[in-house]
């Protein structure tokens, strides 16, 4: 139990980062049908945007907001400038995988070419420990938890109570039908990229706050756990992604504590591959079923 309780605490923090990133990834994949493998690199670039802001001596939370805003703008631009033109040109699924990996490489190594392959930390990280029942959290960890829970409540409210949320769910389930029903799917797709990018940016900054020292690969190292979260929950399903984030965040931290920290990511890899082979549609399968992911 000595190992398990702290691992559970870490797991909840990891889960909130994964939930931010996973919900963003899942919403975007669901609405646009593009497996965006550049997602991890966008997280890193948002972290570097936050780094630039934090170096000006502003409050850390302003840097967090800047990271989120950067992620949103960058994702919308990426979709408008690269992804949509390729799709209009008739690039198929495989081609789009190559496009998104290419973009991922260009962003990641672009960051490396500018900043070099060394470690960076956000300015203004002052962590002090707080005892909460059996758990010990640092103030920054509580901040990450707060961002995670706050963003999840916002996503819930958006999807559940607004017309825009309804249009997004409709577009994810059946884009053609949604368009024929008078939903401006192009606008919905733009907004989906913006929301997904914003969550991606927030997740990127939360991630580098959590690990304290980060490099040009910090975001892309988390890409497969994020995909695992999204696929496990069911593509396009925000609540599924939240559940997936809890499952993967907690199990990987417990595996790290009980087996070895080296195998922390392997848990996510194994969960992803099992889900893909046994139930590729994920837990909540409505949207994935409509996309014929498995023949």
């Amino acid at each position: 139990m000595n190992l398990l309780l702290p691992a559970l605490g870490f797991g909840v923090v990891t889960a909130s980062i994964l939930a931010l990133a996973g919900v963003g990834f899942s919403l975007q994949f669901g609405v646009t049908n593009i497996l965006n493998l550049a997602y991890g690199s966008i997280m890193t670039s948002a972290a570097f945007a936050a780094l630039l802001v934090s170096q000006r001596g502003v409050n850390l939370w302003i840097a967090v907001a800047a990271g989120g805003a950067f992620g949103a703008v960058f994702s919308v631009a990426l979709n408008r400038v690269v992804y949509t033109p390729f799709i209009r040109r008739g690039t198929k699924l495989f081609g789009m995988i190559i496009v998104t990996i290419s973009v991922a490489l260009v962003i990641q190594y672009g960051i490396q070419a500018i900043w070099g392959a060394s470690f960076f930390s956000l300015e203004g990280l002052h962590a002090s420990a707080i005892q909460l029942g059996p758990f010990v959290f640092t103030t920054t960890q509580l901040g990450i938890l707060g961002i995670g829970v706050g963003a999840m409540i916002a996503v819930h409210a958006l999807l559940r109570y607004t017309t825009l949320g309804k249009s997004m769910r409709a577009t994810a389930t059946n884009a053609v039908l949604a368009r024929n029903c008078g939903i401006a799917t192009d606008r919905v797709i733009d907004i989906a990229w913006a929301i997904s990018g914003g969550l991606c940016g927030l997740a990127g900054v939360a991630l580098v706050i959590n690990v304290t020292a980060f490099t040009d690969t910090t975001g892309s190292d988390l890409l497969v756990p994020i995909i695992a979260v999204a696929v496990l929950g069911g593509i396009g399903q925000a609540y599924g992604a939240m559940l997936g984030a809890l499952i993967i965040g907690i199990t990987s931290e417990i595996a790290a504590a009980l087996i070895s920290p080296d195998y922390k990511d392997v848990v996510a890899f194994v969960i992803l591959i099992l889900v893909l082979l046994v139930r590729p549609k994920g837990i909540f399968s409505e949207i994935a079923s409509g996309k014929e992911v498995a023949a």
Binding site: L93, I97, L276
Partner: peptide
Amino acid sequence: LRSDYEAMV
């Protein structure tokens, strides 16, 4: 699997 899912595997 759809080819992007196969790529993921």
